[in-house]
Every structure is written in structure tokens, then in C-alpha cells.
Computed example of a mutant assay.
Amino acid sequence: MTPALFRVRRRSEEYAGTFTLDIQHKEGTPLPRFEPGQFNMLYAFGCGEVPISMSGKAEDSGGYVHTIRTHGLVTQSLERLREGDLLGVRGPFGQGWPMHKADGKDVLIVAGGLGLAPLRPVIYSLLSGAQTCRSLRLFYGARRPQEMLYTDELRSWGAQIQQVLSVDHADDAWSGAIGVITGPLAGTEIDCDNTIVFLCGPEVMMRFCIQTLTGKGISDSAIYLSMERNMKCATGHCGHCQWGPQFVCKDGPVFDYGSVKQWFNIRAL
């Protein structure tokens, strides 16, 4: 429960109000490997702590990477950090994406907005060959072209994986799809018996994506999603993130849809 001291190694601005911190242990101590989909509790001194998903490479023992949207006092304080500044870290916590189930499968990654951040380690892992999937496709939607994460990487990934990028509001330079990501998703061919889906984004977006995927024949148990709830202790003791009989912090944040379907379909639970 006691945060370890970390130092900001690098800081980058994704777009207004969203930034990425690359942090390392203050003493340079090698870090334990995390599982894609896990999160840390980041502590801003004098303000409190927030749960933020890992968004870097799992095999990087030198540091952790977190992409953060400014929303509230703690994230505003984290936004003010610069290279060399200190913060507290607890973690890694939670259950991640079931990477072993990607072996030999068609992997469909569906992300909305900031939801690409927890899925970025999945892409790193699959492109590195840590798991051997049959194919890898990315469907990523954002409000505007300027609000897409990791644009340089998206361009480089385009040479290695099939990508469908979509925005709600396009500008004259935009050449991708326009509209919600469920449109392109509905029009794609899927081998339902050999596909696994990793899904993360706003809950309303995930709800419609699940309807689209199950309507095409994907089984509930083949869809994995990452949930966000008000996590405080990250160890299942405080009860803030209880979701039905489970705790998002220790039983998730990644769940297979089949196991949480009854809870997911209750709005605002």
C-alpha cells in the first residue's frame, strides 16, 4: 500500500489534455514485468492517487509508460510533472488481457479514444512475436483526427497490421472512415470460430461494438473488455470498485464478456 518513488524519465503531449509519462524507479531498480492490461496507482503528492493503465512495452524493465487524460485534481497535478519530477507508484495490479489465447487466432483489437492506451501493450507483444496469432487487425475510432493517440506508431503499424481508423468529425486532410467505429466493424468479414476480440473504450462504444460483434456470430466468451471503475485501494479491500460479485481492481480490469454480461447490461452499475 506504500507508494514507491518514481521519477519522470520522459513526458510527451498526445493532444490538448492528454499526455504520456515514461517513468522509472527513483533508484533505477529494475521493474517487474507487467501483463498487458494491468494498471498502476499513480500518486501525486498532496493530491491523491488514480488508477492508470500501462501503455508501454511489457518487457521494458527500465520503466513504465502511462497515457493520461486530464480530468480532476490528481490528473491535473500529474499533468504538471516534467522530466526529473517525482511521483508515487503502487502496482502493477489487476488481471490483464489473455495473451495466451491469441495463439493461432485471428486477433481483432477494437479501441475508442483513450481506450487504445491499455491495448497498445497487446499490439507491442503480438508484433514482437511473443504470441503467434494468425492475423491482427486494429479498429480504432476517435472524435477528431487531432485526438488520435500515437499517430507516429499508427503509421508504422500500418505496414504490419490491417488498420481501420475512423473519426466522428473529419477535416479536409482526413482520408479514413468517418463515423462511429461500429460502421466499419459491421462491414468486415470475421471468422467467428477462430477470432478473439480485445475491446476498450467508452462504455457506450463498447456496448454497441459488442452488439455488432455478437450479431455477426462472435461468442460472448471470445470478447474481452477492459472496465473502468472508481478504484481506491487496488487490492479489493475498500469495495469502491465492486461490480456485481466482483472487484474491478483485482478480478479485472479485463473480463471476458460472457462472465460479466448480466452486470455490463445494467446501465450505471
Rank of each mutant, 00 (worst) to 15 (best):
I190K: 00
N230T: 09
N230A: 11
V50G: 06
Q246I: 09
R69S: 05
F247T: 10
A222G: 08
T20I: 06
G176I: 05
A16I: 07
D251L: 03
A111S: 11
T132D: 06
W174Q: 02
F93W: 12
G215I: 05
H169F: 15
F208S: 03
P184D: 08
A44N: 06
T67R: 12
E203V: 04
F247D: 03
I190A: 01
G94M: 04
A117M: 02
N265F: 03
A117D: 13
P253H: 07
L31H: 01
G129R: 05
F93E: 07
Q146L: 12
P121A: 13
E14F: 11
C238S: 10
T235S: 03
R137L: 08
C238V: 08
K250R: 15
R229T: 00
Q246M: 14
V248N: 00
G96W: 09
N230D: 14
V248E: 00
T67M: 11
G179F: 14
F139N: 05
G94S: 05
G46Y: 07
P118V: 01
F93V: 10
R137T: 13
A234S: 15
R267D: 09
G187L: 10
Q38V: 02
S219K: 04
A177C: 14
I23C: 10
E59F: 14
V204Y: 03
E35Y: 07
A170T: 09
S61D: 07
S135I: 11
R33E: 08
M148Q: 04
W157C: 08
A222N: 11
L86K: 08
G62T: 12
T212A: 00
D251G: 01
D106A: 01
R11L: 06
K101F: 04
A130C: 06
L138S: 05
I196K: 09
G28H: 02
Q262C: 13
R144S: 14
F34Q: 00
T75W: 13
G84P: 06
G115M: 01
F139T: 09
A44G: 12
A234H: 13
H71V: 03
F39H: 10
L269C: 02
R229W: 05
Y140H: 12
I123E: 09
G113S: 10
G129A: 02
D60N: 15
L87R: 11
F6E: 14
L213K: 00
I210N: 10
G179Y: 12
